[in-house]
């Protein structure tokens, strides 16, 4: 017994080791997606199209922009990821660092139906696949008459109208710098005014949220009555919970987007997958599942979708080159002043 039980345990562990470390890399093309409903959409809309065209299944990895960037930088020219979905800022950085191939209009014919505004700032190293906006959601039982525009909202929060029951995005969350840029456009481009406002709102801020989950946690637990949040997810939440109301304050919102790109060194088949992502059928299917607007101009939204998608004329595309340049200084200022 003394000998046998360690042996049994050892055998179990050894077999665990053998299974845990799969032998050899697979030759499949590796694409990325967010998790949950995004993954389901990628399977249903993008991967199925790809399979129809090539007979192959792509390997879909759920991963975020930061991790993709680290992996691309660690193996330049030999990317472990063949189609990447990046954040706007990371897509610009990756293009500048020579980690991406320029979009190939021959091999991605659907690109001709994607308006130039969706790829111009990225110098054709990446294209938007879908976009969204950051809007306001309130507890309608408590906030009967929410302010119509951002500046009034900010002044009311500052004045304590909602008590300490408000949450805005923190500058330190991945899209925080873009929100900060958007606020500067409301105040004649002045960073100083925006930081003063951030500071003035702090005493009445339950928290500047950092993770999207904690933000909805607070709202769902009714710890807060006013939340600045993504449109698609806010409308989805409000659809389930009648007490929640989501709306776009004037003069609109900033555009945030998922960027599609092919890392340098990825196989040619990656173009085929990208063309699938941008095809009208897959784009519509994707929009219906994730509740965000897409970019192929041939797509006609059905009415029920039209009602909840933030229209293009309501969103402003941030000036990413400027934001990248300002981020380190903003971050430093945020950490020191807004506390």
């Amino acid at each position: 017994m003394r000998v046998r039980s360690p042996l049994v345990i050892g055998a179990i562990l050894a077999s665990a080791l053998a299974v845990a470390v799969p032998a050899g890399a697979q030759e499949k093309i590796v694409v990325t997606s967010s998790g949950g409903v995004w993954l389901e959409s990628a399977k249903q809309n993008f991967a199925s199209c790809f399979k129809e065209r090539t007979g192959q299944e792509p390997e879909i990895q759920t991963t975020a922009s930061n991790e993709i960037m680290a992996k691309l930088r660690a193996s330049p020219g030999k990317p472990p990821i063949h189609v990447a979905v990046l954040s706007e800022i990371d897509a610009i950085r990756a293009g500048r660092e020579g980690l991406l191939d320029k979009l190939d209009f021959q091999k991605v014919p659907n690109l001709k139906d994607v308006p130039e505004v969706f790829r111009k700032q990225w110098d054709n190293f990446a294209t938007i696949q879908n976009f969204g906006a950051m809007i306001v959601m309130v507890n309608g039982d408590v906030v009967k008459d929410p302010p119509k525009d951002w500046k009034t909202l900010i002044d009311q929060v500052e004045g304590g109208k909602y008590g300490k029951r408000v949450s805005f995005p923190s500058l330190t969350m991945p899209w925080g710098p873009m929100f900060t840029w958007f606020l500067t456009t409301l105040y004649d481009g002045s960073e100083d005014v925006v930081f003063q406002k951030y500071k003035a709102m702090l005493p009445n801020m339950a928290k500047y949220w950092v993770s999207p989950v904690e933000a909805l946690n607070m709202f769902a637990a009714k710890e807060i009555d006013v939340l600045v949040y993504w449109d698609g997810r806010a409308y989805a939440f409000a659809g389930e919970n009648p007490w929640a109301k989501a709306y776009i304050p004037e003069p609109g919102a900033f555009q945030s987007a998922a960027m599609l790109a092919k890392p340098k060194g990825a196989p040619e088949l990656a173009w085929q997958y990208m063309d699938c992502v941008l095809s009208p059928k897959a784009q519509l299917g994707h929009s219906q599942m994730v509740k965000y607007p897409i970019v192929n101009s041939k797509v006609v939204y059905p009415d029920e979708l039209k009602k909840i998608l933030t229209p293009l004329e309501k969103v402003r595309q941030p000036d990413f080159a400027k934001i990248i340049e300002r981020v380190p200084a903003w971050l430093d200022r945020w950490n020191r002043e807004i506390r």
Partner: peptide, 10 residues
């Protein structure tokens, strides 16, 4: 898997 799920789903 959990992190990537909660990043865009609630």
């Amino acid at each position: 898997a959990i992190l990537n799920h909660v990043a865009h789903n609630y």
